[in-house]
Simulated assay, not measured.
Amino acid sequence: MKKSFVLLLCVLVCTMLLTSIASAADDVKKVAIILDPVGVNPFLTQVVDKFAEVKAAGTYPMDYSVIECADDTAWAENIRASVEEGYDLILVVGWQGADPLNEVATQFPDKAQYVIIDTVCDNPNVKSYIFKPQEAAYLIGIVAAMVSADAGKPEGPFGGVHANPGQGSFEWRYGYMEGIKSINPKVTNDDFIFNYTKSYTDAPTAKELALQQAAQGCVFINAASAVADFGTFEAALEKGFYTSGQDFDRTSPDNPNIITTQVKYTGIVAGMIIDEFFATGIQPGVVSLGLKEGVVGATYITDDGVNPRNTAVLTDAIVAKAREAADAIISGKLVIEVPLEEEYMKQ
């Protein structure tokens, strides 16, 4: 009888342990992160790194998969497959995923929770996080105007090698232009030169465009084409003009001509999403983040730099002026609303 009791007790304990393990496994939430090939693009690496950090810390019972989209068709396929495979949270990073996410979230509203970063998905089941890059670009414009003035060219021309033309990316150009005009109201739209790589990775094209702008007399060329910016950086070092990076501090002791960076902290946004998902569940809607929330900014202006500041070019006077503008934006005294590009460029 005693042996039978002990055996029965062991069976009960084992059953309880197995049930507990199964229950714990059921509590682990699965997250799908769907995005472009990550590579070294800081806009994407910050998101992935934040999930890795939270996972390693054991903050939440979470597993995640990084699902890269090699081409346009892959977005729809990967988003739909993630729902079918039972992921609890579908996080899409990039405007390319807006339309397929809208379709899937409409068709399967209760199968998962849905979030997109960097564009608005007009769907009642999706939470969209967007940025105010025009606020940070305004600070870069102030830097560009004052650096050019110190070099004897207060009226430019002012350059910009950006990824794409069109209204969708105009906020980068508009903030930059308005920041320059705030320093020198005599500057007109004709004093700007913008060219486009039409790629986030084509550094050779960025370099060639930057060299052309340098030949036209640009002292400062705003780089806004993600990883392709390395081409503009290389041209700056060769030709002596000054430039700025994007998304993550791109200053370098090997290239003193990169004097600041227009930062965008997608990692902070990823942390917000994780916390909300586990605290209350995702609350659909649109959230717009800027300087006030600490999600965009400029190196040495709103954020410390990884490297020492090139004080010979980015002087204390320039930093003070840009910080004054940043404070005005954060307080709401200065509001930068992006108009239609077509109307603005007619001025």
Rank of each mutant, 00 (worst) to 15 (best):
L7H: 07
V92T: 11
I117E: 14
L340A: 14
P100S: 13
E238T: 07
G294D: 08
V28W: 04
Y196W: 11
A320E: 06
V66R: 12
Q213I: 08
E171G: 08
F192Y: 13
D229V: 03
A317C: 01
Y200W: 15
T251C: 02
A57L: 11
Q167V: 03
T73Y: 15
M177T: 09
L9H: 02
L314S: 02
N184F: 03
I67V: 15
V40G: 05
N102L: 10
S288K: 15
H162K: 12
D303V: 13
I142Q: 10
G217W: 06
L291S: 08
Y176A: 09
I33C: 09
N125P: 07
V319N: 09
E234Q: 09
Y64K: 04
A210I: 05
V286A: 07
L44S: 01
V335Q: 14
I33T: 07
L101V: 01
A312F: 02
A105L: 00
F43R: 02
V306H: 13
L9E: 00
F192R: 13
Y196K: 03
Q46R: 09
D191S: 15
G231D: 02
D27C: 09
L291V: 11
G332V: 11
L211R: 14
T261P: 03
D63A: 11
F233E: 03
Y114W: 07
A226V: 11
I193M: 13
G217H: 03
L314T: 00
A270C: 12
K55H: 01
G97P: 05
F158A: 10
F248W: 11
G290T: 11
S244C: 10
L9P: 00
M146D: 10
P284Y: 06
K198N: 13
R309D: 01
